[in-house]
Amino acid sequence: MTDIPMRGGSAGASGDAPFDAVSTFERHRAELKASKRVWNMLTLGAFTIALGLSIWISNFYPERLAEGVPRIFEYFATILPDLQWDQLFEGRDAQGNAVPGSITFWYTDFWTYVELLLETILMAITATLLGAAVAFVLSFPAAANLAPNGWAYWFSRRFLEFCRGVPEILLALVFVFAIGIGPLAGVLAIAIHTGGALGKLFAEVNENASDRPVEGITAVGGSWTERMLYGVVPQVMPNFFSYAMLRFEINVRASSIIGFVGAGGIGAELNRVISFYSDDRVLAVLILVILMVTIIDLISEDIRHRFIGKENF
């Protein structure tokens, strides 16, 4: 038997086997192409139907868009402040009135806003601490390798899923009804959501922890709590800390809008100025919120890097 069939005349001589292989390959290729074409057609069809239905259901018609889009630009024009160069830095006059066109006039309610921003940050800190505490406690039974029994595992998992499944603002709505308008409703709503979200992340960190130290603590006669506190916690603490800081950044954003339903913070003011006035106050509040979020992000990032730097030393 020849190892390498010669090009040309030898094709017939080497028998039917290679010929079959080529035809099989061609047939496979054709089938593959056909099935791929069917898939592409199906995907395209499903996509078109979804698009058509979506446009129909949400009334997203060109004429509505044509009507709406110019109004967007009109709206944005109305929220721009009417600043004038020559009066820009004018203070208040003897009667305590600000001059129109000055920053002082634009930010008449500046200190109200600052107070609300501070409240927003306090809400985020409290909610993050409360949520992280819940997440910490539940992350051990919710870790598959550490759960003391199947029942505790199942219960803590489902509880955490529920906590992070409900949107914060929905929870806030319920709390506002139950305990009244104010930041407490927002804190509780964000804390519950944080507990669920962090609990899942913490549990994943726990599942990746080495089991050797845990075995070591088991062997000295440690109880379940002692195994967690001495065997697992020292390993996972740096990760827990970074996750909690990242969550804090998210919570600052959340607490700045949770006031939309009356749950405290700058959100209530934001809702008020956007819903009732269309003037420069909208932009005034928005700018402050963006500034706050940016500054908090920078500070939190710095703390995280410092902490990780210290840990690595």
């Binding site: 080495s210 050797r212 070591g216 000295v220 006669g221 002692e226 065997g231 020292p234 603490m237």
Partner: peptide, 29 residues
């Protein structure tokens, strides 16, 4: 278990705790 101490091939210490605290975990019981 606390009466019957165990030494492991891979030591099974808590790496991120200091040495004296690791030894003190022997007193937990």
């Amino acid at each position: 278990r606390s009466d019957c101490a165990m030494i492991f091939q891979q030591f099974n210490l808590v790496g991120r705790l200091d040495v004296v605290t690791n030894v003190l975990t022997g007193r937990l019981h």
